[in-house]
Write a protein that binds this DNA or RNA. Structure first.
Length: 915
RNA sequence: ACCCGGGUGGUGGAAUUGGUAGACACGAAGGACUUAAAAUCCUUUUCGCAGUAAUGCGAGUGACGGUUCAACUCCGUUCCCGGGUACCA
């Protein structure tokens, strides 16, 4: 009997489906394990070989945990709202709902062929009304909540209203509040809601008459058509994620994310501690600056305002009026693109005004410059040229005298941002170490009442509306300028199915075109924008726990049981988007008492990208010579060509089909080639992200039909650590396939049939098995799947060599293997053990007795050089000291009585003797 | 510029976290079986030198130094590659 993987895999996939073998329910008697993949966006291109990498890894872990006795939740779903579907729909005239459904079917069929153990009964789709009903519901809860700064948590907005009615607040009294109009009250509350409306800048493209997403804008022009894009203020929805900034930072300490991932999130949040303080200027005006280095206060030689700063007009002197006008005009004329490209260029303008240093009353000139951003801090800075390079360059450029407060640490040629200098020229801070002076200066500032400590964040509130069609509609109705939430009983507010979904008038979303949907009786008008892609993905991991619930987003008892995601696998590209948003939503739901954990993901593993290979070469236009890619640099007459790996064979030769497929560039190449099959080329090879347009995509279906799903799964794991990015290369796949066939031949002979027997195993065989159990068990737990695969190979090689066909050895091996190669393991298990139809077994445990065999012999090195081995009589469990004594005696005997100077016994591994 | 990763054979990658560097696989070379092919099996494969040979000697984990009986692993300096952020005060 040969290994017919095609038949075997189809058979078992069908069986699993029919048996609902991977259906999972809550079970209080078992420990739970929640293993999750970042759900895919179902694009029209289908899966490529890069996608399944993370899915295979999580599938292995799920199957492994299941065998270990855990109740494993391992679901899959689709992030099915989003821009590409809408664009595709606009192009082809199909409805996004239809194309999305079609794409999902393709995805599911492809996934099933790889043999994943998903419980498809728990599938979720973010574009399904039964799902987005709850996205809308959570949005309403956010809308109806505010962030209480004293309790550091979300509370109902009704609490805030009550407080306003009874006590008022810093800005108004209770009487004033009660006298406010409805509109005034609503505007006031809007400033505290966790989901709120504000005016924000969007990318507006006049030519296309639409608002563009950030990634649709490339270098300041629209990605399609290259039309100019400008900033336009529009009414937008936001989530007040900044309120959760500190908790998002603290939470990172409690989760197992990679250091780089945590660092990215910390940088994104960008917390900095400093002080805000005021510099008096003119009559009764004051400039408020933000600084993290109040210790340098005596080194302030000028202040700089952002050009947009509100005080600019007020404080500008008559003489400087014209210069400032000119400068403001210049700033306005500069596009974002120019500003970004010319960061190094120093520009600015003196306002003619002087501010007073609050400590020594020194007169400080006030400038404006575009290097100061209006959006961060107070939009104004105090400039300390000896300590900050940008301030230094500015001072040099405009000839502003520089005060040195750090003595020899400042060399007069560049700024020095040290905190380790002793302060000079610094009034009451003189002689103090800068590090220590920071706190002292802050205390003084607060004591004198000229400022206060302030924490700043780089992170902005998250824009939550999109002027798009294919997303969740907002359950909000506008009545006389007031946003009125819909009644929760009327959810979901379904997305109207329409044929036209071009942009609406005046930058509104496509929904604005659907008049009978938008315009309501009782002079209400629906919100016409839709929610962004991350709305649905911010909470989907909760829905899997209770996907069909129509009365709640997730039953509390269920979320209590399944709790946090134990293992979350996905790409790094979501480091600051999806992961921050879903962490915030979880914290919010936790505040509301709707879930009992406030971090969604306990452990995160980032799978690397599988890249495709592209090959570069160049052709000389004059000599028709095909040369190396590098020649491009030597002479411009070389034209550059690039092909995906599909067009290049193993030797770097262009395949014949290139000439058929890509006529444009290649037609003449073939006429220049000396060799009909394709000239031999020296190519430069490069790895790039897989994409259809680069012809470097491999489809998993092809691999599966050629080698089988088990080979595919094991091969992707064998390529290297899951976290690592690596180029896709089918070269090594034969090796893995050979391994599986070899395993098969331990059970079946092609001609003679079954080979297995029930003989008692030898110690050597047991040792081989238990060594493998130990290795594979450890590696699977720690996601070192590549070395686990190697361990399997070693074991099967050893067993083949020993001609071991004993079930007592082989069956535990099958159990061990089943997470990696479930089909073949299932088939062989079924063949050798009746009558159970599916593999249900306990995960084998390594027996240390058998493993001790391995530790009996110790290599010995003498003076770090010569080597031999000694055998320690008994099974020393090497607490190093006692083993060293034992080794010492043994070595003495072996050296015929001569005592070694020193014997070092290392972890049961090796003996090093110094004579 | 700054912050994270990472540099190991022809290639992908191992190395129990300080203990015989190069597991496992690919590729390559040679051989067995076969009319032949496929499949399978065996041998060699870090580099250099010596030898008919078994083998021996020397070098070797980007580079240079240090700690240690012992360093891919720890420390310092430096170079290169990948990722993230960027006038954030």
């Amino acid at each position: 009997m040969e290994y017919k993987f095609g038949e075997i895999e189809a058979k078992w996939q069908q069986q699993w489906k029919a048996d609902k073998a991977y259906k999972v329910e809550m079970d209080e008697t078992k420990p739970k394990c929640y293993v999750l993949d970042m759900f895919p966006y179902p694009s029209g291109a289908g899966l490529h070989v890069g996608h399944p990498l993370g899915y295979i890894a999580s599938d292995i872990y799920s199957r492994y945990k299941r065998l270990k006795g855990f109740n494993v939740l391992h679901p899959m779903g689709f992030d099915s709202f989003g821009l590409p579907a809408e664009q595709y729909a606009l192009e082809t005239g199909q409805h996004p709902a239809d194309t999305t459904d079609k794409n999902i079917e393709t995805f599911k069929a492809q996934l099933d062929k790889i043999g994943f153990c998903y419980d498809w009964d728990r599938e979720v789709r973010t574009s399904d009304p039964g799902y987005y009903k709850w996205t809308q519901w959570i949005f309403l809860q956010l809308f109806k909540s505010y962030f209480c700064n004293t309790q550091q948590k979300a509370r109902p907005i009704s609490d805030l209203i009550k407080k306003y009615e009874e006590k008022g607040c810093a800005h108004f009294t209770a009487e004033e509040w009660n006298a406010f109009s409805e509109k005034e009250k609503a505007d006031c509350l809007m400033k505290r809601r966790l989901a709120f409306v504000s005016y924000g800048e969007v990318n507006w493209c006049e030519a296309l008459g639409t608002v563009l997403a950030n990634d649709e804008v490339v270098n300041g022009v629209s990605e399609r058509g290259g039309h100019p894009v400008e900033k336009k203020k529009m009414r937008q929805w936001y989530l007040r994620i900044t309120a959760y900034a500190d908790r998002l930072l603290e939470g990172l300490e409690t989760v197992q994310f990679s250091e780089s991932m945590k660092e990215m999130q910390r940088n994104w949040i960008g917390r900095s501690e400093g002080a805000e303080m005021e510099f008096a200027v003119g009559e009764g005006e004051a400039i408020k600056v933000y600084t993290t280095r109040p210790d340098t206060i005596f080194g302030v030689d000028f202040l700089v305002l952002a050009p947009e700063h509100e005080l600019v007009q007020k404080i500008t002197s008559a003489e400087q009026k014209q210069a400032i006008e000119d400068y403001l005009h210049y700033v306005k004329s500069r596009s974002d693109r120019e500003r970004m490209a010319e960061v190094k260029q120093i520009t600015g303008c003196f306002t003619g005004a002087f501010a007073l240093n609050p400590f020594d009353g020194k007169k400080i000139p006030v400038w404006i410059a575009e290097y100061v951003l209006a959006g961060y801090g107070t939009g104004a800075i105090m400039a300390v040229p000896c300590g900050d390079q940008r301030d230094y360059s500015f001072a040099k450029h405009f000839d502003i005298p520089i005060t040195n407060i750090i003595g020899e640490h400042y060399n007069g040629e560049e700024a020095n941002a040290t905190k380790d200098a002793i302060l000079q020229n610094s009034g009451f801070l003189n002689g103090m170490l800068m590090k220590d002076a920071i706190g002292v200066a802050m205390d003084k500032i607060e004591e004198l009442g000229i400022g206060k400590r302030k924490v700043n964040y780089r992170m902005r509130d998250a824009g939550f509306s999109r002027q798009r069609y294919w997303g969740e509609p907002f359950p909000v109705i506008w009545k006389e300028g007031i946003a009125v939430p819909m009644d929760e009983k009327d959810l979901p507010l379904e997305l109207p199915i329409e044929k036209e979904y071009g942009p609406g008038p005046e930058g509104e979303g496509p929904l604005a075109n659907i008049r009978n949907w938008v315009e309501l009786e009782a002079n209400g008008r629906r919100e016409t924008s839709t929610m962004p892609g991350y709305a649905g993905s911010s909470w989907y991991f909760l829905r899997y726990m209770d996907p069909k619930n129509t009365g709640a987003f997730c039953d509390k008892a269920k979320s209590d049981y399944w709790n946090q995601v134990d293992l979350y696998i996905g790409g790094t590209e979501h480091a600051v988007g999806h992961l921050l948003y879903s962490r915030m939503w979880t914290k919010f739901l936790y505040d509301k008492g709707l879930v009992s954990f406030d971090e969604p993901f306990k452990k995160l593993v980032n799978q690397g990208m599988i890249t495709g290979k592209s090959y570069f070469f160049s052709v000389n236009a004059d000599t028709k010579e095909i040369g190396t890619y590098d020649k491009l640099e030597e002479g411009k007459e070389f034209l550059r060509y690039k092909y995906g790996h599909q067009f290049v064979d193993g030797t770097g030769r262009l395949k014949k089909e290139v000439f058929d497929k890509n006529k444009s560039g290649v037609e003449h190449i073939i006429s220049w080639s000396k060799d009909e099959a394709g000239q031999f080329l020296m190519l430069k090879e490069e790895s790039e992200k897989m994409s259809k347009s680069k012809f470097n995509v491999d489809n998993p279906d092809d691999i599966v039909s050629k080698y089988g799903a088990d080979t595919f799964r094991m091969y992707e794991m064998f390529l290297g650590p899951v976290e690592m990015s690596k180029p896709w290369d089918t070269k090594g796949i034969e090796g893995v396939h050979r391994f599986l066939r070899k395993l098969w031949r331990l059970f079946f002979d092609d001609i003679k049939g079954p080979l297995w027997n029930t003989d008692k195993p030898t110690p050597a065989e047991l040792k081989s098995l238990h060594k493998t159990i130990k290795k594979v068990d450890g590696d699977t737990e720690t996601f070192s799947y590549n070395t686990a695969v190697s361990a399997f190979m070693v074991c099967v090689n050893e067993l083949s060599e020993m001609k071991c066909h004993k079930l007592e050895i082989l069956q535990p091996l099958l159990v061990l293997l089943s997470p990696y190669a479930p089909h073949i393991a299932e088939e062989l298990w079924h063949a050798t053990s009746s009558p159970s139809s599916v593999l249900i077994a306990e995960y084998p445990v390594a027996n240390e007795e058998y493993l001790k065999e391995a530790n009996k012999e110790y290599p010995v090195s003498i003076n770090g050089k010569m080597r031999t081995t000694i055998t320690l009589a008994t099974d020393v469990s090497p607490a190093d000291a006692e083993a060293a004594v034992l080794a010492n005696e043994t070595v003495q005997k072996w050296l015929e009585g001569k005592a070694p100077k020193r014997v070092i016994f290392v972890k049961g591994k090796m003996v090093n003797v110094v004579i």
